[in-house]
Design a protein around this nucleic acid. Structure first.
Lengths: 401, 401
DNA sequence: CCATATAGTTCAGATTGAAAACTAATTGGA
DNA sequence: TCCAATTAGTTTTCAATCTGAACTATATGG
């Protein structure tokens, strides 16, 4: 008996149905369903839904929002929605900036703020201090709007251990085995602050607040090339939690050495630095270099065009291999790749067609529309999702308080 | 409300616990646990376990096997085991042979038979006819041993649609969109016959009856190069069910064209045909060529050695990329690669160390020990697993009958 | 032969959803 | 104006199923 799965108890049924009803309300979104509609949608009886909704309303997760009239006869229903008076703070540390946002349970970004910050090489404590200022701003905004902060999500460009609040490694920040104390950013928030990986959060943001496709590979072109795999509306993390390292897929066995110790990795051909260098973009801040590169592309300068073309070609190789291995049918481009999409896509599609003909419909290669808030939304969304998936635990906690 | 998850009913608790108890008995295997031990292992009360076991015994899935004595004091328990009087037939169609086997619920291969058969290009009906002869043999053996056949699993080297009993494509058999009628092989078996992919079945066989690791990539080197990804003791199939196509990962962007329409695929460097050709092995049957190649390798013939070395190198590239993308930490070599392992492994490990240093512990690169029966066991195991995972449905059916 | 220990069963109690009957609120037509 | 029709939501009764505690069954060892 190596694995001890938990036994089913009578009470589990209610846990599950609480989650089912809450999830139904979340999915229905703006339509603000009534109890009767939820009963029809979930397959539960009206009696069961009424009882479940009563608990959810009492906990503050769900609120009744006026009457619901369809223009037909009969008693109108009470509209239900995820409370707009409860929110989660999304936070992001990246190489060049810090960002925070307040997301209510319904997924609306109620407030948003970002500052430039050269975080590479900075001590984690120093960065957390700066982030704390932004967090204070959010808290003030939340108080003003009468929104209770339930918790927060913090995305960093590196490998994290969410259980132990540990950044295992964030090479682009020059961090290694750093213990953050994210909880301190939002003192008093009952659900604390959850660490997560930037690319994974962006992928989840795209899933919950973007395209809504259930299966896709999100490609994050920040300083490194990252990826997030969404399968069946869930993040695929792999057994060790480090899946999606698209940047270190080998795209040429005779390629140059990579910072990861390997060779021929995608990142050495399609990382930001690699593209800037191949394009001959002079040194400078990220914003400046991006401007210059875009200008060069617009001017059809050959070196820049070739650089982006090559990046697209090798990205195509990596995507072809990924699609074959993981059966991926859709790709969403984010970060740098979204910015360069116009010039990148043709080479990418040609490459895909060469290495995996017919596997990926060109229409399934899309560009993220969430821009910089995707990561934020995903980081906060993970906390919101955890409430939607186990509301019972939340109910218990809020009854004690 | 786009997805309608099923509501939890009170009866679901019992469904789950029936499965939990059955699974506990299966895992404990030869130890033949008592009800009391199951209660301790599952966290259920003795009362609940007794009630659940009663149902399982009545259905015939579980049998009591004499008393259980620990040498200590107290009333001895009744040992329980998955019935050895119920079995599932595993069947395999491959390019060069057909095989069948009888697996009892406890996972013991009770009977096994295989014949050579040049199936490439043969009509599916003709192949099924030959397979029917083997199936008849199994049925006779089962009758003689007083084992009731519950169902069967049939593995084929191609992409299948298990719901519709369809082989979507099996290029190495020259089959395309073939409708088989596997159920006819085992008339009267209550669970019918389930089609599955050969590489996936071999991976599952390895999981259930081989190493027992919960996370690994199985590499099947038959005529094509296939793969099966096991994550968290489950087969990863991807959204469309075609995941694990290791053979068509791009290992060299300037590589030769592949039968899949792409270019630079692993299969063009490490497929059986590619290795034979590179090694200069003359034409002939698979068995003959394998003998010749092994002899050449034993004699340290340079061309053969180089061919296998190259195959290992490119397999290393594919595994490095796979490990990065899917966070795979262990690899099991099967089929042709298991046969060549002695000569293949050094180059493979060197390659892995070059392209993904430190990612895969050399000790986690193992060779399948199940040989040809792995696929059979996996094909049958899927049916056995489906019973273990939802015994309630089986109970219902057996009560009606 | 009895104290002790362990296995397994029986029965009351609690939780929970289904089903059906009931109350509540609204519209439209007589 | 008022009542039939219609839809929303609540109350009540019932069945399924687990827990916990008390009970019975069967072994060992002095």
């Amino acid at each position: 008996m190596n694995e001890a799965a938990a036994p089913g108890r009578v009470g589990d049924v209610r846990r599950r149905n609480l989650s089912l009803v809450l999830d139904s309300i979340a999915r229905t979104g703006d339509a603000k369903p009534s109890r009767a509609q939820l009963a029809a949608g979930t397959g539960l009886t009206k009696a069961a839904v009424s009882s479940l909704v009563a608990d959810l309303v009492e906990s503050g997760l769900v609120s009744e929002v006026g009457l619901y009239r369809d223009g037909e006869r009969g008693r109108p229903g009470q509209g239900l929605e995820l409370s707009s008076r409860r929110g989660v703070v999304g936070m992001e540390i990246n190489v060049d900036y810090l960002a925070v946002g307040l997301v209510d349970l319904g997924g609306n970004l109620r407030f948003h703020s970002a500052v430039e910050s050269r975080n590479r090489g900075l001590a984690p404590a120093k960065v957390m201090e700066r982030l704390g200022l932004l967090a204070a701003e959010v808290k003030a905004e939340a108080a003003a709007a009468n929104i209770a902060i339930l918790g927060g999500g913090l995305a960093v460009p590196g490998l994290v251990d969410a259980q132990r609040n540990l950044v295992l490694s964030a090479p682009n920040l020059h961090w290694e085995q750093e213990e953050l104390n994210p909880r301190a950013l939002l003192e008093g928030a009952p659900l604390g602050v959850r660490l997560s990986n930037e690319a994974n959060s962006a992928a989840l943001g795209e899933l919950w607040y973007g395209t809504g496709q259930p299966d896709f590979l999100y490609v994050s072109g920040e300083v490194g090339v990252g990826g997030g795999v969404i399968i069946g509306s869930e993040l695929y993390t792999g057994p060790g939690g480090t899946a999606g390292e698209l940047g270190h897929i080998v795209v040429h066995p005779d390629g140059p050495g990579c910072s990861c110790g390997g060779a021929g990795c995608l990142e050495t051909f399609a990382g930001q630095e690699a593209i800037f260098e191949a394009a001959g973009t002079p040194q400078g801040s990220l914003g400046e270099r991006t401007e210059l590169l875009l200008a060069a592309l617009a001017a059809q300068e050959p070196q820049a065009t070739q650089a982006v073309h090559d990046a697209g070609r090798y990205l195509g190789v990596a995507l072809a291999s990924s699609a074959r291995l993981m059966d991926i049918e859709a790709v969403v481009l984010g970060g740098h790749f979204a910015v360069l999409a116009e010039w990148l896509k043709p080479a990418l599609l040609t490459s895909l067609e060469r290495y995996a003909p017919g596997l990926l419909d060109p229409g399934n290669l899309t560009v993220s529309t969430l821009e910089h808030s995707g990561t934020l939304l995903g980081a906060a969304g993970q906390v919101i999702r955890s409430v939607i998936e186990s509301p019972f635990e939340f109910l218990l906690a809020s009854k004690l308080a």
